[in-house]
Design a protein around this nucleic acid. Sequence first.
DNA 1: TAGATTGTTAATCGATTAACAATC
DNA 2: TAGATTGTTAATCGATTAACAATC
Lengths: 216, 216
Amino acid sequence: MQKNNISNSVIRRLPRYYRFLGGLQRQNIAKISSRELSEMMRLTASQIRQDLNCFGGFGQQGYGYNVAELRKEIAHILGLDVSQKIILIGAGNLGRAITMHVDFEKYGYELAGIFDSSIAMENIEIAGIKIMHTNRLEEFCKKEKPSMAVLCIPRTGAKETVEKLMELGINAFWNFSHYDINYDFPDVHVENVHLTDSLMTLSYAAKGTNEPIGEE
Amino acid sequence: MQKNNISNSVIRRLPRYYRFLGGLQRQNIAKISSRELSEMMRLTASQIRQDLNCFGGFGQQGYGYNVAELRKEIAHILGLDVSQKIILIGAGNLGRAITMHVDFEKYGYELAGIFDSSIAMENIEIAGIKIMHTNRLEEFCKKEKPSMAVLCIPRTGAKETVEKLMELGINAFWNFSHYDINYDFPDVHVENVHLTDSLMTLSYAAKGTNEPIGEE
DNA sequence: TAGATTGTTAATCGATTAACAATC
DNA sequence: TAGATTGTTAATCGATTAACAATC
């Protein structure tokens, strides 16, 4: 029973819970208490219980949580139990790497099609999927009805691409381009991935280590 | 003048400020007020001023902020103005994609070496850099003194790799592996990139759209 | 039952926003 | 100078932690 407004902070912790529970399952651990899990994950037991209780009482007093069951519940909350079709736009270095590296099936997604605007790319196969020319997008989407798109294209022309995809019924974007989708399309679901942001955060932290406190 | 403890939330916004200021610079915009910037970035002017004032008074009353100057200050805060050597470990799909896709030079980093434990990979060139066998790590690090490592290896064996790299003076890891570095090495700087976490967050948000409120 | 651990309410802490005096 | 906009303090809001009664 999902309460209406779950905070973003909670949602962003769910995939991590899911991963840790997966690890426990691999070790054949059947039950875990919030305290044990909190020690593994380096957060408080309180937070775990609060987080989980946003969605329902998945535990049992005096016992803890059933690992397999809890994992399944989180999968359901995240929508991993319903297969979703995804298309990927832009088969450059990044697009190809994501295709090969991200295990879509593992999380219940299906990478249904890869598109590129370069004719030279057409019919090249990546991870068993043939690249299609973008002029086949409409035909494909009307038939396959993908719900999400991975955007691996340059900023230029990205707006037009998103507009087109929205018309074809896609309203969720995993955005690796540096184009700010929500600025033009505020109602669409976007998850931005700015790899270099993360690198810069690291370099800030590392910098601190080597400098005396009080430096500018 | 950096106050001692800047919160993580502030730090994580800096790269985004940096990007937006870059955009303004490309458009030859010389000055911007916190209000104007806040409208572009969809956050409050208050927050921008608070964030920046953690590091110093970069603005001028009645005028606003000089774009070029502010961008330079943020680059300095993030450590982008000091060239840092980075090595990348693991030249599989992901490692190669990061090598080709991430513009290290643009942010003042130098990708100084790529290492892989497979002999078959040795001397293959990616983006102009020859892959070295991991047995050359020690020799290389003693000579080049890289400060950060990009980890693109499987979980298995990751602990040993990190341990070795630490001994060779590396204390910052851009971690694409699913190995939890800080669990074993709490003092090392780590920036974890879990691409699929971000995808799951998106699928949660997208799911909400298609379901009636109050559903489980 | 007694012990353990949850679910949940209350207290605390931190981050964001609002307000305004300082000042260019 | 008058107008604009910062830097900074105070108020608000939300998220995390602590506490404990409910209950397995």
